[in-house]
């Protein structure tokens, strides 16, 4: 994506502009990233307002008619309802189920990353600031954890914890905090020796204030980049775990679980139950990755002129 932004470097905005304006100006230089961002906003709105715009409440059993089961996309049922994307094995409208599923997928992904970011940033800053034994201990834990494949750690955790939205979030946080801790420590080590930190220390500010108000904000750019890409990772991992039957419970199906439900019908040629939720999931992930890629280029100090 850097190829796209390179020519625009000559027209760098004037220095008087605020950093946020500059970041936005640089971000919109990539049309692909803007497209990803718009797509992402659309999905976010669909997730938030899903229950209001969905053709039916897919988890109210009174709405379901078993006679509507496995209707192909576009089919009109006996009750006059049109199933735009077909219906699943219980006669549920796929479009509605996907809107509800998107809600859960996004909620789990965003919450898990927010928590992992908070915990990881705290641990990383602490390691960098305290140094010595605390630093060694935290980083050793991080190293050991990162040497295991994320999927394995999450699988075992869920095997121990059991099903549930909260438990999936816990598993995702445990898997991902280490990335943030490592990045935060790296950034904090660089920032620690800068003059503004020295100045804050000379002013006699408390350690907490120094860490949270001075050090943390300056360590945020790399963390934001990781967080963006990590939301995509979280959503994929959650979908995978739910697909294996170890993620969200049946009562709160995410996109991954919808895909899993379709697996049973796939061999008999009923493709739409797995196809459409998977397409939606892929689009969400691509949109996040497009935005994340561009953010990395914009926020990366090494690419600054």
């Amino acid at each position: 994506m850097s190829d796209v932004t390179l020519p625009a470097q000559t027209t760098a905005p004037a220095k008087t502009e605020s950093p946020i304006k500059r970041i936005i100006a640089e971000f919109v230089e990539s049309k692909l990233a803007v497209f990803g961002f718009i797509l992402l906003m659309f999905f976010a709105l669909a997730a938030i307002f899903g229950p209001y715009v969905a053709p039916q409440d897919p988890y109210d059993l009174a709405n379901l008619d078993i006679l509507d089961a496995r209707l192909p996309p576009g089919e009109v049922s006996g009750t006059g309802m049109t199933f735009l994307l077909g219906s699943d094995g219980q006669g549920r409208d796929m479009l509605s189920a996907m809107l509800y599923g998107l809600r859960i997928s996004l909620f789990v992904g965003v919450t898990a990353v927010a928590l992992a970011l908070a915990i990881g940033a705290f641990a990383g800053l602490l390691a960098a600031y305290a140094g010595g034994r605390i630093d060694t201990f935290i980083m050793r834990v991080v190293d050991i954890q990162l040497s295991f494949p994320a999927i394995l750690v999450a699988l075992i955790l869920l095997a121990v914890l059991g099903n549930g939205v909260d438990k999936v979030i816990i598993a995702l946080v445990v898997v991902q905090w280490a990335y943030f801790a490592r990045a935060a420590r790296g950034a904090a080590l660089v920032e620690r020796s800068k003059e503004y930190v020295e100045a804050a220390r000379c002013l006699g500010l408390s350690r907490a204030r120094l860490l949270l108000r001075h050090l943390l904000p300056n360590c945020m750019p790399p963390l934001i980049v990781i967080a963006t890409i990590d939301i995509a990772r979280s959503i994929t991992l959650e979908a995978t775990l739910s697909f294996l039957g170890l993620g969200v419970p049946v009562t709160e199906p995410s996109l991954g679980m919808l895909i899993a439900n379709g697996f049973d019908y796939l061999l008999s040629g009923v493709y739409w139950i797995s196809l459409f939720p998977g397409l939606l999931l892929t689009l969400v992930i691509i949109a996040i990755n497009l935005v994340g890629d561009q953010l990395r280029d914009v926020l990366n100090p090494r690419l600054k002129r």
Binding site: T240, I259, G262, S274, L275, T282, I285
Partner: peptide
Amino acid sequence: SLPNFWVGLM
């Protein structure tokens, strides 16, 4: 970006 397990199903 493609979810691994979904690729398998497709």
